[in-house]
Amino acid sequence: MSDIEHLVTDHFSGHAFPCRGGETLLNAAARSGRQIIRVGCRAGGCGLCKVQVLGGRYDTGKMSRAQVSEAEEVRGFVLACRTLPAGALEILSQNETNA
């Protein structure tokens, strides 16, 4: 963790929340107190926290290929439990693939 905070804006719910440096996107969303992203295994396996990143820089850990295909990964689909924002992030917390 560092003192850096990145602002995450969800264009589905309209909510924005801060994410600390080194904190996962899912943890930051859960910490915001609103149910913006579903919380599942928190280990990149079950896919409940799948969202789409529309813009911004981020790193990801290992995510199940059964949940995020290579083509989806190119289009910004991620599992929030495995995503570390590296700057301000624009996301879509729900869409046709996880509604």
Binding site: G40, C41, R42, A43, G44, G45, C46, K62, S64
Partner: peptide, 8 residues
Amino acid sequence: FFDPSGNR
């Protein structure tokens, strides 16, 4: 609980 790959 979950293993590190998300298996319960």
